[in-house]
């Protein structure tokens, strides 16, 4: 019988303690942050989507289009497009496309980049109704006003042109040689083919 009442009193006491706690919380100020009206400052290490780093000296990116990020990406969401522009050392980045819908924000691309060309942005207000909005061209995002033309180094251009000419010459020679060889070969083939057809006719 005493257990009965003890249980009852303990129960009521525990309920009262609960009420006391919630009452205290009721009287304290809410801790919420009204998101669209206020927003949090992201920590510097926050991993948003990746972005190209603007180099202050050249006021453009440092990407050399080596493709290490593309290779290291587990989800295959990066594709680096580049082309060779005469007079510029290395390849020139024409588009750095990040498919953010499949990105898992693992950081492998940033780690793999030996040139320090990409980093995580701090942007988190990304909302859209369309999937296509998440396929970013990071180059365009870096230069919203328009991608500047790569600086052409005249010396390099000259050198390159010479090289090219030389190469063209060599290629032309090679081509001629190849053509000759091909012609010979063709002739030989014709002969043998002719022989074959004759053989067929015979049978």
């Amino acid at each position: 019988m005493s257990g009965y009442f003890k249980y009852l009193f303990d129960g009521i006491k525990s309920l009262a303690i609960g009420l006391k706690i919630t009452n205290k919380e009721f009287l304290t100020k809410p801790i919420t942050l009204q998101y669209p009206h206020e927003s949090v400052k992201m920590t510097p290490r926050y991993r948003g989507h990746i972005e190209l780093i603007r180099n202050d000296e050249t006021s453009t990116h440092q990407c050399v289009s080596c493709g290490m990020c593309e290779k290291g990406c587990p989800s295959g969401c990066i594709s680096v497009k580049s082309k060779k522009v005469p007079g510029v050392k290395g390849k020139v980045l024409t588009a750095y496309i990040l498919n953010f819908t499949t990105c898992s924000l693992c950081g492998q691309c940033v780690e793999n980049c030996k040139f320090g060309a990409i980093r995580f942005s701090n942007e988190y207000n990304l909302a859209s109704r369309r999937k296509e909005d998440y396929i970013f061209n990071l180059l365009e995002r870096l230069h919203p006003e328009g991608v500047p033309e790569p600086k052409v180094d005249p010396e390099l251009l000259k050198k390159e042109q010479e090289k090219k000419e030389a190469a063209a010459k060599a290629a032309a020679e090679k081509k001629a040689a190849a053509a000759k060889a091909a012609a010979e070969k063709e002739a030989a083939e014709k002969e043998s083919a002719g022989g074959e057809s004759k053989a067929e006719e015979k049978s």
Binding site: T22, E25, F26, T28, P30, I31, T32, Q34
Partner: peptide, 13 residues
């Protein structure tokens, strides 16, 4: 509103 304030948030606002 009561639930909100008890739970450290604002409730309808």
């Amino acid at each position: 509103k009561g639930a909100g304030h008890i739970q450290r948030r604002n409730g309808p606002k």
